[in-house]
Design a binder for these strands. Structure first.
Lengths: 342, 342
DNA sequence: CTGAAAGCGCTTACAG
DNA sequence: CTGAAAGCGCTTACAG
């Protein structure tokens, strides 16, 4: 590849002049500029981004590490929409994404640190949903700014930047909706209990029951894998409860809701006539499932876009005008929920 | 951030020694190595990847530019699974992905060239499905190796590397399946007619009809947007055909199939009793739709993984042992197809 | 408006 | 096994 010096020689200027032309520096005479561009074109020259980065200490790149590589993670709307939001926002600002994989939670943190330490990105979006206070502290020891997507770890908020959905409110609305339909025995089907978002939702679930004066029943709480099997398995367990079995299910994602519905159908239980089911995420399948699933729309793309914008603000201005955002979810009512019939 | 020189000073060695330790160079005494690591740890040192890249002319990074940023593109299984395959394969080989967006086809090509010219990636995966021979030629003028995912442009194959699904065969099987069910009036609902994959499928569709001695009917060919509306609109048109209207639909993706089914239901036409529908991609919704949609499973993740492996082989060995691969699809039979009833 | 030079933080061929 | 030096391809403060 041609370098700045090759162009300089051909255009009869010093290499610093070529550099100035390509970095958009104004103090260049039109004549010189044209000569340089002509020479560059002839040689097929384009500035080497790596060399520029080394010199300017800026990569115009934002890092992320993908927490899971299994198929379902890319089929749920959660991750792809997050990705879309990040991509769109960074593209608009002239940034690119550098994305890495990982094998497990430990590795995820290692990879994040590595991207930070190796100066490959000007900032990082951290998607991990099970960060603890210590780990966040470690990340803060690096100079690389980062924004967390999801629930920040409890403990003192050490000035960590984050954007999250209002899971507390969303869960409350969903559960309250079931309560308003007359349901009292409501099952909570959550995912990984170490997942901070899951925890927040469960807490909100409990509080909503409390406020309605409905006693909590530990038998109606199930933690499973974030997919159809997770939902399916919860039903087997709950149906054994006899008269204490639930009349409504609240599921942590739509795939789990699909699993629940499937398991119920298998037991000749009708949805929503006999049992109501409400999901989370508003994934495409929730719309096409039979019955179409009532669910909570979580604005993942918007969250991710916001996180990127915050990060870029920090990178370019040195500071974020606001360090955290909570975005609203909305209840999407479809056909999987109905009034309780006794 | 600490540099190699800070570590050198603290460990009482020359910076080149520190460099050797961190690049895994063997000719370092155990004692020195330990001293260097200790000093590095104390200073929180990690090699600057940018500087290393400038020096070695290797970034251990693979570039891609995402052709579309609209929501549906991230909800279909096509793109997310492609992404998953690339991510998994590159992670395994110690590479990361650098991903950029674009606004339209022209911009897409520009962005690809820019990544190539600026040496930000050691190689690029090109996903564009409407590349022409000239554009490929331009890309080949750069030193950066690339692998095309999808159908290579027709014309002389100028040594371009690609991996594609066997769309010809997949379409043939799907259409032949409908023919075997007794259907003779089969509609082709394709996407963007400039999309090379679409073209290949349409060609195969026609050939299959020809071989079965079924006359082609141009009225039964529709090109629409790659989403529900695309499918939906095709039905409105085809139903006007009266006795020449189709008894079966072949759709270019599952979202279109869903749109077709929805439009048919709206017209009180039963699927599959009255009309059969077959989709493409085996997206999650195809499984959950009502009726569950018969479709063609295309191994996107595998294709993408293969492309990345080829690229890395080229980057590391200087050559690919094989420059193109065609992967098999498979017909997934579900409930949207049935025997033709007259 | 432009040139000459130092520097960004590494790697590596050359010596010893 | 280790050091000294040149080089990767840019940018930018300093002069003029």
């Amino acid at each position: 590849m041609a370098t700045i010096r090759d162009v300089a020689k051909k255009a009869n200027v010093h290499s610093s002049t070529v550099s100035r032309v390509f970095s958009g520096n104004l103090s260049i005479s039109e004549a010189t500029r044209e000569r340089v561009f002509a020479a560059a074109k002839e040689l097929g020259f384009w500035p080497n981004a790596i060399a520029r980065s080394l010199s300017t200490q800026r990569t115009n790149t934002i890092g992320i590490v993908i927490p899971h590589i299994f198929e379902g993670f890319f089929n749920d709307s959660f991750f792809p929409q997050l990705m879309r939001g990040m991509l769109e926002a960074s593209y608009k600002k002239g940034f690119r994404l550098i994305v890495g994989g990982c094998e497990n939670y430990e590795d995820e943190i290692d990879q994040i640190k590595q991207i930070m330490a190796s100066s490959q990105a000007d900032g990082i979006i951290v998607m991990s949903s099970r960060l603890d206070v210590d780990t966040v502290g470690e990340l803060q020891n690096h100079n690389t700014p980062f924004v967390l997507i999801g629930h920040p770890p409890s403990g003192e908020n050490q000035g960590i930047a984050w954007v999250d959905a209002d899971n507390q409110k969303a869960t409350q609305e969903a559960v309250q909706y079931l309560i308003d339909l007359g349901h009292k025995k409501i099952a909570f089907v959550g995912g990984d209990p170490e997942n901070l978002t899951s925890q927040e939702r469960e807490k909100s679930f409990n509080t909503t029951l409390d406020l309605a004066g409905i006693p909590r029943d530990p038998n109606l709480v199930h933690h499973g894998f974030f997919d159809e099997s997770g939902g399916f398995n919860s039903v087997a367990r709950m149906l054994k409860l006899g008269e204490n079995s639930p009349t409504a299910f609240y599921a942590a994602n739509d795939l789990m809701a699909v699993g629940i519905i499937r398991a119920l159908k298998k037991n000749n239980i009708r949805v929503p006539e006999d049992i109501s089911v409400i999901g989370t995420n508003n994934a495409p399948i929730s719309e096409y499932a039979q019955p179409a699933i009532s669910t909570v729309d979580v604005p993942y793309a918007k969250m991710a876009g916001k996180a990127v914008e915050m990060l870029i603000e920090k990178i370019e201005q040195g500071e974020m005008s606001q360090t955290n955002f909570t975005l609203e979810c909305s209840l999407v009512l479809r056909d999987s929920t109905a009034e309780f019939q006794n």
